[in-house]
């Protein structure tokens, strides 16, 4: 902290006489830090505009599909878990809070505090993806894929995995497959962190260890999501024994809603919903991954004490991007998970 304060004081002394002396981060084609900041701000807003328009294509496709076949959306939404979706919404909202707080910290030149908040944001992003991995793998186990490969049969329950790691842990093979890359990254970041620590490169070491913590967040989300999923499934199995009549009544109602096509060779194209579901949530997940990379970069710059009251643009701009990712999820959650 003390080093930050001294930089700020030094900067204050030069404030009035020479703007070009402002610091190492003002590019030569800008006259003042304010001009540089405003240009960056306009740039990121224009980028956000392109992002909104980019996603609007998918929202438009969603509206068209739902307009023509609302019954498909009603039938499909029973495969989506509102609790997992809700938890993920809260996780993303919390990451938005810590991000906005990190921007405030950077604006006040509190680099150390900003780095802590950015690390929390990174972990939340990874927790989100971990829960998402549980949701995806559960659907894949039930043969719920995009429309061309959708093959879910009413009442189908996959056999419990018996072989290998999946059998040992009692989780699905799809989830294990989704965890391979994060596990490799976790180990890789840890090793890199230790190597840089040995070579006494503190900033790089801190960066890699933070990224390892971030990947730990993925497993936190995956384990938590899987525990919930197992509990929900066993509850459903028990509920099925006791309230069988009620369940049967519900199914009869559903059949009435989806029409007589359920058993014919023209079943309602429920896979269509999952095409748009996988594309929208998948593209959103890619944005989360992109955000994680950008946040890691911010973390590195915070540990190098780069930010101060007249230079915090990068934190602000990545923050705006991160809030947009949150905004898109704010719309995706009710549109995909909350359909009656």
């Amino acid at each position: 902290m003390s080093s930050v304060d001294t930089t700020a004081e030094v900067h204050d002394e030069h404030h009035d006489d020479d703007h070009h002396d402002h610091g190492e981060f003002i590019a030569h084609h800008f006259d003042t830090p304010e001009q540089q900041y405003d240009s960056g701000k306009l740039g990121i807003w224009v980028f956000l505009v392109t992002e909104v328009l980019f996603f609007s294509g998918l929202f438009c496709a969603y509206v068209l599909l739902r307009y023509h076949q609302p019954e498909v959306f009603v039938a499909a939404s029973e495969h989506l878990d509102k609790v997992l979706g809700g938890i993920n919404t809260i996780v993303l909202l919390f990451s938005s809070l810590t991000m906005a707080w990190a921007v405030r910290a950077a604006q006040l030149g509190q680099n150390r505090f900003a780095s802590r908040l950015i690390l929390i944001t990174m972990v939340c992003a990874a927790v989100f993806l971990g829960v998402k991995a549980v949701e995806y793998s559960h659907k894949w186990d039930l043969n719920i894929y995009v429309a061309s490969h959708y093959n879910y049969i009413e009442g189908y329950h996959p056999d419990a995995p018996s072989e290998g790691l999946a059998g040992a842990l009692g989780v699905s093979q799809s989830l294990i497959n989704l965890c391979v890359l994060p596990a490799i990254l976790l180990v890789g970041f840890l090793v890199a962190g230790v190597i840089y620590r040995v070579r006494e490169s503190q900033a790089m070491s801190a960066l890699y260890l933070a990224m390892a913590v971030m990947m730990g967040g993925f497993f936190l989300g995956a384990v938590g999501g899987q525990i919930y999923q197992n509990a929900a499934e066993s509850a459903a199995a028990h509920g099925g024994d006791h309230g069988h009549d009620a369940a049967a009544g519900e199914h009869a109602e559903e059949a009435a809603v989806t029409g007589p096509d359920t058993t014919s060779k023209y079943p309602p194209p429920i896979g269509m919903f999952f095409s748009i579901y996988y594309i929208m949530t998948g593209l959103h997940a890619f944005h989360v991954i992109g955000g994680m990379v950008a946040l890691s970069w911010l973390y590195y710059r915070c540990t190098r004490n780069h930010f101060r009251p007249d230079y915090y643009g990068p934190v602000d701009f990545v923050g705006l991007y991160w809030h947009l990712v949150d905004l898109i999820w704010i719309y995706l959650f009710p549109l995909l998970y909350l359909i009656n």
Binding site: D12, P33, E34, Y37, D38, L93, F94, S96, L97, A100, W101, V103, R104, Q107, L108, P309, D310, Y312
Partner: peptide
């Protein structure tokens, strides 16, 4: 925060928590 540059408007922690 009167000593901050004029383009720098930190949002109060209270407001951030309220929004959350």
């Amino acid at each position: 925060h009167g000593d901050l540059p004029r383009y720098n408007h930190p949002v109060s922690v209270k407001l951030l928590l309220t929004v959350f």
